[in-house]
C-alpha cells in the first residue's frame, strides 16, 4: 500500500501545486474544446451558406458550370448503407447471441470474441483492400455491392460485441422462468433475451451504422464513385463521403462549396439517425420491437 506522507513539508506549497494542476486541467479542457467548436462552426457557417434545393435534387455538373448537387451521392450512400445493414446487422446480432447465450465460458466463444475485437481495430483502408481482394478482383469491376459488403464486414464485430454486452445484462431469472414454463431454448432467446435487451441492441446497431456511414477509405476501391444516378447494385456508385473527398481535393471553389455542404448533410444525417433512435428507445416505444 502507498505510504501517505506529505510530499512537501510546507502546506502552502502543496496548496499552490493543487491550484496550478487544477488550472492546467481547466486550460487543457478549453484547448480541446476549441478545435471541436471551430469544426462545428465552420461546418455550419460554410455548409449552410452553400446548401440549396439543387443540392438535394441534381447530379454533379461538369467543371465550370455552376450549380449541380449531390443527389446521386445521397441516394448512392443510402443504397450502400442499406446493403451493409441488411447483411451486417442480422449476422452481427446472431454472433452476439452465440457469444452470450451459447458460447459464454467456452474456448470457442473466447476465440470468436477476441477475433471480433481484432476485426474492430483493423484500419478502414485495410478493409478497403480486403473488399477489393475479396470481391472486386473476382467480379472484375467496382460495384455498389462490393462497397456494401465491405461496410457490412466493418459493422459485424461492433454489432456482435454490443449485442453480447446487452444480452449479458438480461437477468438469468428471466430465462429460467421461461425454461420453467416449458419454452424451448431458441424461443427463449428470441422472445425473452433479445426482446428484453432490444433497446440496447438497437442503439448498438445505430452506432455501428453511424460509424460506417462516414467511412470513405473502404469505399475508395469498392464503390469507387460515379457522377450519375445509380441504375443497379452491380455498377460503380456514388457515395457522400467519397464525393466530399474528391471535391475537397479539387482546385475549384464551386466544388469546395459543395464539399462543405455535403459534410454538413452527412453529419446531420448521422446525428439525426443516432439521436432519433436513442430518443425512441429511451421512451420505451421500441421495447419488444424485435
Amino acid at each position: 500500500m502507498t505510504q501517505i506522507r506529505p510530499s512537501r513539508s510546507n502546506a502552502s506549497i502543496r496548496q499552490a501545486t493543487n491550484h496550478i494542476v487544477t488550472a492546467i486541467s481547466i486550460l487543457s479542457t478549453i484547448v480541446v474544446l476549441v478545435p471541436l467548436i471551430a469544426i462545428l462552426f465552420y461546418l455550419i457557417y460554410k455548409g449552410a451558406s452553400s446548401l440549396n434545393l439543387a443540392f438535394f435534387t441534381h447530379t454533379p455538373k461538369p467543371v465550370g458550370e455552376s450549380g449541380g448537387g449531390m443527389a446521386n451521392s445521397i441516394v448512392g450512400s443510402s443504397l450502400v448503407l442499406l446493403v451493409a445493414s441488411l447483411m451486417g446487422i442480422p449476422i452481427g446480432i446472431a454472433g452476439g447471441v452465440y457469444l452470450s447465450e451459447y458460447g459464454s465460458g467456452t474456448w470457442m466463444g473466447a476465440i470468436i470474441r477476441f477475433t471480433a475485437d481484432v476485426l474492430n481495430g483493423v484500419p478502414s483502408i485495410v478493409m478497403g483492400i480486403a473488399g477489393y481482394a475479396l470481391i472486386v478482383v473476382h467480379q472484375h469491376h467496382f460495384s455498389a455491392l462490393a462497397g456494401g459488403v465491405t461496410l457490412s464486414i466493418m459493422m459485424i464485430p461492433t454489432v456482435t460485441r454490443t449485442t453480447e454486452e446487452m444480452l449479458r445484462t438480461v437477468p438469468n431469472s428471466l430465462r429460467e422462468a421461461a425454461y420453467g414454463l416449458g419454452v424451448p431454448r431458441w424461443r427463449t432467446v428470441l422472445s425473452i433475451s433479445l426482446r428484453s435487451a432490444a433497446p440496447g441492441i438497437i442503439t448498438g446497431c445505430m452506432l455501428a451504422f453511424a460509424r460506417v456511414a462516414g467511412e470513405t477509405a473502404p469505399l475508395l476501391f469498392t464503390a469507387f464513385g460515379s457522377n450519375f444516378w445509380p441504375h443497379s447494385l452491380n455498377e460503380p456508385i456514388a457515395a457522400l463521403p467519397l464525393q466530399i473527398f474528391v471535391y475537397a481535393l479539387s482546385p475549384y471553389d464551386e466544388w469546395h462549396r459543395l464539399a462543405w455542404a455535403g459534410s454538413l448533410v452527412l453529419i446531420t444525417l448521422i446525428m439525426l439517425s443516432v439521436g432519433l433512435v436513442r430518443y425512441v428507445t429511451s421512451r420505451g416505444q421500441l421495447k419488444g420491437g424485435m
Binding site: 449476422i91 446472431a94 458460447g103 481484432v118 480486403a130 459485424i156 431454448r185
Partner: peptide
Amino acid sequence: ADRAFGGLMLTCALSILAIVVLIVVMLLDQ
C-alpha cells in the same frame, strides 16, 4: 429447432473468424 437455431447462431459467429482468415489469405495471395 433448438439444435438448428444454435447451429445458425454458431455459423454467424464463425463467419467473423472466417472473415479474418479470408482477409489474411486474400492479402497474402494478392
